[in-house]
């Protein structure tokens, strides 16, 4: 999911990454709406709100909305900065670092909310800022490593693309195009995962409240852990096959030494 970059990614990699992160984004968005009465995973609406608040002369609200948009932007900036600067050293580390940072943000929100939150406006705005930054990180990372194929925190582009794809499928030549079919599957999977996450969060929120952020973090740990596990498995097989190969080579050399004709040894 996280090890491969850009065009070397398979459809399976993108679907796994897309569904898991879209599921967590759907959860984050709904839980922030229920707790703080504001969205946290999409910023399109905030641009309109920014303009409306500016026109009305509500400078406090203008500043807050601007800060949220900027933090979403910063999330994308930081995620891609990490990917392009640490990629050559260790691809897995570069790709898992933004997700780790996102988990940290979600844990901060969950922990603070569970133990210290007194529902003041400053707290609400700060916790929302953490969530918007986290969502920016996630969207930046998934878009960056998938060559802009996977974007999971909002569904505006996804819905538009699905509309275009399904209209294309009214013609046989496009219906049989494997690239378009794959794209439609990916986008449908992301949409379904996002909605499922949102519904699950909507139900779970009434039972566990802020603890839901720990559950979302656990999902993201799966995203990181899946590849860490795969790397370990691959490394194990690699090492054991290298060991076997060396053993075979050593045995072969011994056999050649023992059974070789005298002139060969000379």
């Amino acid at each position: 999911m996280l090890r491969k970059f850009s065009n070397s990614r398979t459809q399976g990699d993108n679907i796994k990454l897309g569904t898991l992160t879209a599921f967590s984004a759907g959860m984050v968005n709904v839980v922030s709406l229920l707790l703080f009465l504001s969205f946290s995973s999409n910023v399109t609406g905030y641009y309109a709100i920014l303009a409306a608040e500016f026109v009305k002369g509500n400078w406090y609200q203008t500043a807050i909305v601007f800060a949220w948009i900027f933090l979403f932007f910063m999330g994308g900036f930081v995620a891609n900065f990490m990917v392009i600067h640490f990629n050559k050293r260790n691809k897995y580390f570069a790709h898992s670092l933004p997700i780790s940072l996102e988990i940290l943000c979600l844990l901060v929100v969950g922990f603070y909310g569970q133990f210290y939150y007194r529902e003041t406006l400053a707290e609400t705005e700060l916790l929302l800022a953490f969530l918007l930054f986290a969502m920016g990180l996630q969207n930046g990372l998934t878009a960056s490593i998938s060559n802009f194929a996977v974007k999971t925190t909002h569904l505006t582009g996804t819905t538009t693309d699905l509309g275009i794809l399904f209209s294309m499928f009214t013609k046989r030549e496009f219906r049989s195009n494997p690239v378009l079919k794959k794209r439609a599957w990916l986008l449908s999977a992301i949409t379904a995962a996002y909605i499922t996450g949102a519904i699950v969060a909507g139900i779970a929120y009434f039972h566990i409240g802020f603890k839901l952020f720990y559950v979302i973090s656990a999902f993201l740990v799966v995203v990181i852990g899946h590849d860490a596990y795969k790397i370990r498995v691959v490394r194990y097989y690699w090492n054991s096959s290298r060991k076997k190969c060396k053993q075979v080579q050593a045995q072969d050399a011994r056999e050649r030494l023992v059974g070789a004709p005298v002139e060969d040894l000379e």
Binding site: L37, S38, I49, I64, E119, T120, L121, T124
Partner: peptide, 11 residues
């Protein structure tokens, strides 16, 4: 009472 969102909702 609490003010939430961007300061636009009274709960």
């Amino acid at each position: 009472w609490a003010i939430k969102g961007r300061g636009n909702i009274l709960e």
